[in-house]
């Protein structure tokens, strides 16, 4: 019986990560303490992490269930839209040659990113999101291109070529 679910899962994750890094470290020379190889430090840090993870998991077992340790509902919506907006920004800014998407430039990327990110919230109003995107697109242009002179493509490549 798990009394503290957060700790139990966290400990398991630590063990997994430690095992993965320890296996990786074994691929490099570990060496001796006088002549440490590339694998020495990561290997022993991984071992510590595995032990600590095991300790955290084991101590989270018990009978008296602790409600503060519940993980709670996992919200997928913010994760998808926030990270999606971020990825979309990258894809639109530089293009995706493998699907034939040309670089779309800063302004298009800003619009898409802001609108998709806004969808992560509970209340999404198209008019508001468009207004916000317009304001941000204008201020990004002034701030990053005019003032800071960063080397960013502004318009889609097929318009400038």
């Amino acid at each position: 019986m798990v009394k503290h679910r957060q700790n139990f899962v966290f400990g398991l994750l630590c063990m997994l990560m430690g095992i993965a890094f320890a296996i990786g470290a074994k691929g490099y020379s570990v060496g001796t303490s006088a002549r440490m190889g590339a694998g020495f430090f990561p290997f022993y840090v991984s071992c510590l992490l595995i032990l600590l993870g095991a300790w955290i998991s084991v101590t989270s077992l018990g009978q008296d269930h602790k409600p503060e340790g519940n993980i709670g509902k996992l919200y997928v919506r913010p994760v998808i839209f926030i990270l999606g907006a971020n990825l979309l920004f990258g894809v639109l800014l530089v293009g995706l040659p493998s699907v034939g998407l040309p670089p779309m430039g800063l302004l298009v990327s800003v619009f898409a990113t802001v609108i998709v990110a806004a969808m992560a919230g509970r209340e999404f109003v198209w008019r508001e999101a468009l207004l916000l995107a317009s304001v941000l697109a204008a201020s990004c242009f002034v701030l990053f291109v005019v003032m800071l002179k960063l080397n960013l493509p502004v318009l889609p490549s097929f318009l400038t070529a």
Partner: peptide, 24 residues
């Protein structure tokens, strides 16, 4: 309101990350 703030933060994070090394 926060619903205006967080899309702006996401945008500035994305731009900031990209311009650090100019790589996607």
């Amino acid at each position: 309101p926060y619903r205006w703030l967080f899309p702006s933060i996401v945008l500035f994070c994305a731009i900031g990350v990209f311009t650090t090394n100019n790589t996607v």
